[in-house]
């Protein structure tokens, strides 16, 4: 899923302080799972903001709504009838949701309420870790199912680098060395001979470097 983290309240306050009628818009997908921008977070943030502005003698109306998804036209259409009632939308969706909402409602300021962090997994409640950088050309088949692009600080394709110590990254003991993990897997699978195959230079054209990306499937388009 897309993992996001709540922005600090004071930062949110700073971004919305000049508006009087604000729609706080949550999303039922990834940001709900990572507890950053679902219905519950919308409720809490809205309540906190209402109290803050009241306490500071400012009349601000903050309303709440959480959509099934903010990355799909059909769900975003649900607010079309009411969008003009607001001076701004504070979206607690990921960066995709914020932008999709902004795209759709041209004249309404749409502001981000979370920091979109990475594509990751839930290690346990309250701990999420990165697993993928969406480089557009998956190499997991040759790296034991562990991704050096997203999990090595230097995205070394022929690792580990010289900084790997006791299975940890040179960044420090809190970060696993991705290449140690790769080697552990290759060993466990009895495929250590694959380690010595040189990885070719990666084609980053499918990554961010190639410009904004599109996936187009003619077979399913209507």
């Amino acid at each position: 899923m897309i993992v996001a983290d709540k922005k600090p309240i004071d930062e949110v306050i700073e971004t919305i302080k000049d508006y009087e009628k604000i729609l706080l818009l949550g999303c039922n997908e990834c940001v709900t799972v990572c507890e950053a921008g679902g219905k519950k977070e919308v409720e809490v943030l809205a309540s906190a903001l209402r109290m803050y502005f009241l306490n500071n003698g400012k009349k601000v109306s903050i309303e709440e709504k959480t959509l099934e998804r903010q990355c799909d036209h059909e769900y975003l259409e649900e607010i079309r009838d009411v969008i003009d009632q607001y001076d701004a939308v504070l979206s607690l969706a990921c960066g995709v949701g914020v932008q999709f909402t902004a795209d759709k409602y041209l004249s309404t300021p749409v502001l981000p309420g979370v920091n979109t962090c990475f594509l990751g997994a839930t290690e346990k409640r309250g701990v999420w870790t990165e697993r993928c950088q969406a480089c557009g050309k998956c190499i997991l088949a040759s790296t034991g199912g562990i991704c050096p692009v997203s999990r090595c600080a230097k995205r070394v394709m022929n690792g580990p680098c010289g900084g790997s110590t006791n299975g940890k990254c040179e960044l420090g003991p809190d970060t696993d060395c991705a290449w140690q993990l790769i080697i552990n897997r290759l060993e466990a699978m009895g495929k250590m001979d694959e380690y010595e195959k040189l990885s070719p230079l990666k084609d980053w054209a499918t990554d961010r470097a190639g410009g904004p990306r599109t996936v187009e499937r003619e077979d399913i388009q209507s």
């Binding site: 022929n158 580990p160 010289g162 790997s164 110590t165 006791n166 299975g167 060395c177 140690q180 080697i183 060993e187 250590m192 380690y195 010595e196 040189l198």
Partner: peptide, 14 residues
């Protein structure tokens, strides 16, 4: 002396 031990030589070979 790099970790992991088992790839010290394979890594040089690479």
């Amino acid at each position: 002396f790099a970790d992991p031990y088992e790839i010290r030589i394979p890594r040089l070979a690479k």
